[in-house]
Structures are given as C-alpha cells and as structure tokens.
Write a protein that binds this DNA or RNA. Structure first.
Ligand SMILES: [Mn+2]
Ligand SMILES: [Mn+2]
Ligand SMILES: [Zn+2]
Ligand SMILES: [Zn+2]
Lengths: 135, 135
DNA sequence: ATTGCTTTTGCAATTTGTTCGCAGGTATTA
DNA sequence: TAATACCTGCGAACAAATTGCAAAAGCAAT
C-alpha cells in the first residue's frame, strides 16, 4: 500500500489550488489570506480569493493550519507544526517578536489550577511595547 | 471655580450623544459599537452609528474608554477604570470569564526582564477552553 | 478510458463592519 | 447674541469576508 498524500490522508481532494495554499502558508510563516493569495498567484495566477479563504478554512478543519490574531484586523495563518512560539506585537512600531511558548508555562498552569481554564497562548498575540519603542 | 464635567476636563464638548455613549459603555461592561448604539437608542433613538464610532474613538483618545479583542470579530469597549481583569474566552461555548490582572504578573515580569517587552495583558483576551467545556 | 457521483472552483453578488465627505446644527467663549 | 470651532446625521464609500450557483475537476467504480 503506497503512502498517501497528506491531503488525501485527511480525506480531502487533491487540487492544485489546495496544495498551493498549504505550501504558501508553510513558506510565509504567518500570512493573511490576501498574502497567501498573492503568493499562490505567482505560480497559479487565476486563483480566486474565495478559494483561498475556503481552503484555509478546510485546512484548518483538518489540523494542517491554524490562525492567530496579531493585530486589530483579520487573522493570520500558520502551518500547524510551526506554531511553537508566542507573538510579541508592538503597538508602537508594529514589529512582531517571538518568544518560546514555555515563557507562558507558569501563567498557563496558574489558569488551569485556579480556574480550570485550558489556555491556548498562541491564538492571540501578546500585545505591548517592544524594547526599542520603550526608550 | 466649579468642578468641571469630566468630558469638559478632557477638552471635549459636552453633547448628549457623547455623554450617552460613555454612559452606555460604563453600564454595559464590554460592548461592541453596535451594542453601544443599541443602548443609546433606548433614550436617544436618532443617534447615528457613525456618531457612536466617532465618539468611541474620541473617548479612547482621551483615556476614558479602551478597547479589547475578545474574539475573531471587531473590538469591544470598556470604561477605562473598569479594565482591571483578564478576559478568559472559551473557544467552545463563547463564555467570557474574568481573572485578576495579577494572575499574569509573573508572566508580564518575565517578558519585561527577558525581552524588554512591556505587556498590556488586557488588550487581547486569553483564549482557551473553560472548565465546563473541558469535561 | 469512460462513467457517474461528489467536491471544488471561479465569479458575481451580498453581507458585515467601519470610515468618510459634507452640509447643517450646536456647544462654547467672548 | 454673534462668531467660530466642533460635532452630528446622512449617504456614500470602503474593506474584508461570505455566499449561491453553474461549470470544472477529482476520484472510485466499471
Ligand atoms: Mn486593538
Ligand atoms: Mn480566532
Ligand atoms: Zn516597537
Ligand atoms: Zn466553554
């Protein structure tokens, strides 16, 4: 029995658009739907934005991508396996820094112990002012 | 010299619409612009939604209200003096729990010490699964 | 390869949330 | 009460995201 394509393994049809959307998310790190579309268009100019939205949703449903909120606007997408860090978003300059998820481990444990709340610290960014802008 | 109205103290004109928007934010706890408009309309039916948006922005500029992001959609507004808690948003049932800001004190200190990052933990919600939905 | 079923796509229209320009109205100060 | 900023209502404009639909394409069975 031959090894299946990862999309087929998830029960999805294998279309060029879908593969390209997944590949774009993986290459871009974090990207808005518009940025994903932009990237995909470099090899597949005809792709429609609604196809990108639908595929991002589908890929998220099967666990291959995830979204996070980095700012006041829309979501950004990550490859699921890469979402291993916190996002530190600076409200002054807009820079996006990273910190290991462990940084929040105690905080997450406290919320679990005191409130029974299971926190996903990557879904929303950590918002504040970066070192450069604090001076 | 008589005590000034708080809006006048901030250099703003005292209009019925503005007072009502501020009062609505204070009474509602957290509210979307649409919800604020709804509330204001109970005593001032004619208020326009764009007036609500403009006043929320103005009131935020002078520090009387603040906005936070509780979900995937638009912002919600708080009275500035009431934003003294974290929001624990459940991704399953949508409930919004509170926790004291102190809960995050160590986390905030770590980010400051290790990254020079000054965190505002109230701007984005804490996202996860509540106790009820974990079972 | 062909068929038939089902999913996916492109496209246009729609919805939703927010902002803008402008003309008339109102709060404030003198 | 008159001058002048500021503010409001209104409609239009805008942007992001969603939807309905018919045509196209993927897939499994023949
Ligand atoms: Mn914000
Ligand atoms: Mn989200
Ligand atoms: Zn910065
Ligand atoms: Zn819940």
């Amino acid at each position: 029995m031959a090894k299946q394509h990862e999309l087929r393994e998830k029960g999805l049809r294998l279309t060029p658009q879908r593969e390209l959307v997944l590949q774009a998310v993986r290459e871009l790190g974090h990207a808005t739907p518009e940025e994903v579309a932009e990237k995909v268009r470099s090899t597949h100019p005809g792709i429609n934005l609604s196809t990108v939205y639908r595929n991002l949703e589908t890929l998220e449903n099967v666990g291959l991508v995830l979204h996070t909120h980095l700012g006041h606007g829309g979501a950004t997408y990550h490859a699921a396996e890469e979402l291993t860090h916190l996002h530190l978003v600076c409200s002054v300059c807009g820079s996006i820094g990273d910190a290991p998820i462990d940084t929040a481990a105690n905080f997450v444990n406290t919320l679990a112990d005191d409130y029974g709340f299971k926190t996903d610290v990557t879904h929303f960014a950590i918002y504040g002012t970066c070192q450069k802008c604090s001076k």
